[in-house]
Design a protein around this nucleic acid. Structure first.
Lengths: 257, 257
DNA sequence: GGGCTCATTTAGACACCTCTAAAACCATAA
DNA sequence: TTATGGTTTTAGAGGTGTCTAAATGAGCCC
């Protein structure tokens, strides 16, 4: 009856349960333990105590063995949780152009830790993209598709294509791009493009070579095939051959201004 | 010595420990239990068993009561985890323009659930923004600052300003925008802008009124002050007065194409 | 060596979430 | 009314991660 602990923070598991209840009740008006267990892929024995706790918190109306319904405050909270889910999955799906399924999977896992502040900024950004004529979705779409094709390609080297696309976008014709491997000791630059495909590309990322990162080449290793560099203060020894796949710009590009 | 379970998936807590060890050893070459406990804000008694497990997995070199160092495979994995962290915090900070501290806080909490696929797409998007001349960072910056000022304002109604900014961006002069409250029963539209400030804006979001969402007005409630609508299949009763703060576009805007 | 101090480990508790298996409950059919 | 079958709850156990408090170890000064 009384909302005992309405202010207490929910655990992620309880948030998930509440969200499932919301989604289900939107369709049916009520849920049973069995439904929740099925949707959330757990056993009914795990759901039962969770319902008791949600009920004690005043978030659901629940008498043992009866239908489960949201209270008013429960629905408000559930919509709030669901809104985090929606913002994230919409961003992944519609802005980043991920597969719907993969987008939702990520959103489900990340939504519990998205702060209000982050949500505010993310939504504002999406509003901007939705309305700004200077963000040319056509270019982004084309670039995305082309890159994704490349990562799925059969090993053929498309780096020239990539450079082309970027050069065209920059309005610079076919002017050659500088590479990480071109840097001289002591020189600092910003990473702008990774040209690797698939796993090779991921290897670059996993080493910390992330677009937007500022890198300083410390020195070439005596072995002649490695170089040492500093990425945001972290040291890294890498194969110079790999560095040829990393494009850099001499000064901070416009996005950082 | 031997990497017993190198393939076993790490829990988030162990990932955090490994990441902390990485960051610390980059500066000092080694870490002690005490350092980790301080940085991660836990007691030494909690760190100890975690180090034993990481050691059993072959990710760190650790003899009881000695310094902690990463093994080769541990460092590789740590860099991979750190790369997820970097991608996310860079996105929050440099693209979404959040405060560095808040950006890192979110990244720390979300990094453990960012899949490879999501990271790929996010990085690709950042590459695009870094290089695309059609994404005019100046407009985004100005819009961001203006909106953020609005949310921090003292309650004065800036909706005209907001409309102005958007109209200018769309190159439409001062042509009036349609509102959610203007929809007639049965009509469908896409949410483009939320004009509320601070908590009012959040209330809209928490109800599910998210930019990009498709909404269909079901009917006006007999009480005259509420309306019922469908957002992506979910029902919602809302105050029509609130709907005046929500801008909509008749057809899918360009971002969805 | 003795004693001091600090770091680390261990042990015991608690919380949370999950599972399985068995018991309790309920509705419906015979 | 009784039997049956599906649903839900309970009980017990395991895994993870945290804490506190006490025990252990190591270094250092006298």
């Amino acid at each position: 009856m009384s909302p005992h602990e309405q202010s207490a923070k929910l655990t992620s598991a309880l948030e998930d349960y509440l969200e499932t209840i919301f989604e289900y009740t939107q369709r049916q008006g009520f849920v049973r333990v069995k439904d929740i267990a099925r949707v959330r892929n757990v056993k009914a024995g795990s759901v039962s105590p969770a319902m008791r706790r949600l009920s004690e918190m005043g978030l659901i109306d629940y008498e043992r063995r009866e239908y489960i319904r949201l209270t008013e405050s429960g629905e408000r909270l559930a919509r709030e949780i669901f809104s985090r889910h929606e913002v994230l999955s919409r961003f992944f799906c519609e802005v980043l152009k991920m597969d719907r399924e993969e987008a939702v999977k990520n959103a489900c896992a990340m939504e519990h830790s998205l702060t209000e502040d982050a949500k505010d900024h993310l939504v504002l950004f999406m509003e901007f993209l939705l309305n700004c004529p200077f963000f040319d979705i056509v270019h982004w779409q084309r670039f995305h598709d082309q890159q994704m094709d490349i990562t799925r390609a059969d090993g053929c080297d498309h780096s020239c294509t990539t450079a082309c696309v970027f050069s065209a976008m920059r309005g610079e014709g076919m002017e050659p791009l500088r590479r990480l491997s071109d840097l001289v000791p002591g020189e600092t630059a910003v990473i702008t493009i990774l040209e690797g495909e698939g796993d090779e590309r991921r290897e670059l990322l996993n080493l910390g070579l992330i677009p937007g990162s500022s890198v300083t080449l410390s020195h070439h290793h005596p072995d002649g095939i490695h170089s040492e560099l500093l990425i945001n203060g972290f040291g890294l020894r890498f194969l110079r051959a790999l560095g040829a796949r990393v494009c850099v710009a001499g000064e901070n590009p416009s996005t950082r201004g």
